[in-house]
Design a protein around this nucleic acid. Sequence first.
DNA 1: CTGAAAGCGCTAACAC
DNA 2: GTGTTAGCGCTTTCAG
Lengths: 342, 342
Amino acid sequence: MSGRISLHDVARAAGVSLATVDRVLHGRPGVRARTVEQVQAVVARLGYRPDPAAARLARKSRSRLVFVLPAGTNTFVDMLDKQVHAVAPWLAEQRAAAAVQRADVFSPVALARHLAGLRERCDAAVVMGLDHPLVRAAIDDLVAHGIVVVTLVSDVPSSRRSRFVGIDNVTAGRTAASLLGRFVGARTGPVGIVMGSRALRDHAERLFGFEQVMATEHAHLRVLAPIEGHDLSQRTEPLVAKLLQREPGLVGLYSIGAGNRGIQAALEKSGRAEHIVWVCHELTPHARQALLTGVADAVINQDAGHEVRSACRLALAALSGERVLPDQERIRIDIFLRDNLP
Amino acid sequence: MSGRISLHDVARAAGVSLATVDRVLHGRPGVRARTVEQVQAVVARLGYRPDPAAARLARKSRSRLVFVLPAGTNTFVDMLDKQVHAVAPWLAEQRAAAAVQRADVFSPVALARHLAGLRERCDAAVVMGLDHPLVRAAIDDLVAHGIVVVTLVSDVPSSRRSRFVGIDNVTAGRTAASLLGRFVGARTGPVGIVMGSRALRDHAERLFGFEQVMATEHAHLRVLAPIEGHDLSQRTEPLVAKLLQREPGLVGLYSIGAGNRGIQAALEKSGRAEHIVWVCHELTPHARQALLTGVADAVINQDAGHEVRSACRLALAALSGERVLPDQERIRIDIFLRDNLP
DNA sequence: CTGAAAGCGCTAACAC
DNA sequence: GTGTTAGCGCTTTCAG
């Protein structure tokens, strides 16, 4: 009986020892090319799948994961940071440990250098950063050194990273436009956009999706050129204040990135918060408050906890050749209104 | 070193053998009451946590899970059914197996009898059914016989079930009202409601949440008395057709349960689909189609895959005393508009 | 009532 | 290059 095929079965069928099969499976050196092929053939033929629990139990060393997150005072990033610490007990059970490092993500040079420093210091890196040739090269270099790289929140698609964990940002932008347009309703007027930077891939993608839907479905609303506030409240507040002054008929505002506290302040000080449909991202405590008071009309969210756990699972799976359930790892776009706050 | 405490450590500290500790941990008979207490004290003092991987590896027998789902032609239920089959490989790795049984969930007597038949035939039952004293008693009886019971989609809160897996249905109803109200915008007129049955707890809760928000936030819209269509398209279609005839000024429609194909047909045949904001539940292929063509304006969804996987994890965790991450098991309310369809 | 001992399927050190 | 072997932490017989 026993539908399951074990390492033992493979070893016997291939006429080699357990250790040799193990070496082949892990791509470790010290096996003749011919033997490698033979073993691989048997593995394929028998449909062997390693038992993750047994592997975990036998493994002595812990896998080291490093999360590289943006430095600075971004509430959402702090939430990610906290979630990394929160999974620690679970990771320990999986013979793994995670550390968080903060790096200047807005500078390609600094980020690339930071990544280079990770070589030999970890088994997997989870990186939230900008899509730039230097960064891409740094990621590819890590991968070439056998380090598993997972991108988080903002992808670097042309790199050799093994996975991306985050929402579909084009769709997120489309969703924002859809809600904003429908909430504005029959009124008409200009719509503003505030973003961190066009260099951030997630922001650029959201912008793209947003403009797409606005143009096709809410063409009567004039979309203004985006304002770039570098995700900092101190910078977004005066910019939005100026925008409000310049556009007295503003009916909607989409904030693509962070710096929402500044935007909220500007809206409130203008006394026009009620008449402007404001859609923003990430359900931070402030965004939640803004939703409750009616200043914000919808918040589009990605669940930091799910993202961190998913990144860990994917990194560990890549390290151990475990199976992943793609459905389970898809990060969904959450829409929050005042009435469905969790 | 070794921060982790093993069974071995507990056994030594308590001055007994591995087997005895194991018996105590699993509440198996054949241990003197005094010994039980001593061991439990040591377990508590040392903060011992069993290693789930090791347990899994050593276990010979498989845990049997049974899903009890409503009989009939409900697309969402079919999706749950499919998902149960989809987790089979994963369950096998966890030394478990799941079977699906369909029962007449609308009849308390039939459902209770069905549940009674599960005794001795499984280790855990995942039940989607109605909240009724008979059903509650049947669940409590299973629990008394050492079977883990998890409720799915619709809860039976006063029973001794170990967990509920599903969305917060009051919040779901509130969300529906919020979207419907905002989408209707400045227009005014009556709003209809179609539900399966008031006896279904999830439906009753959604209705409650919906009426709550409509009354407080969209008081200018008159909410009509709910129509009960027993979740069957054949029954909902004529009922909705009649409603449309009776209420020529209808501006919104909330369908709380299933039977959406009938509702869609009635809306389309009336030629007024464009002017009526329709919000429904569960992203089935038809609902998706309705969203794309604009007949439906929003779909509130619970992810069948997540629910099934969560139910499995919770049932297995309850069986083996494993830790659960509550955040990970919270089923979220998904909002789908045409522009964020996955 | 309690304990000793044989694995579960894999990894990793060490021997050949 | 390849094989042998000793565990990982738990469950489960089978003896006492």
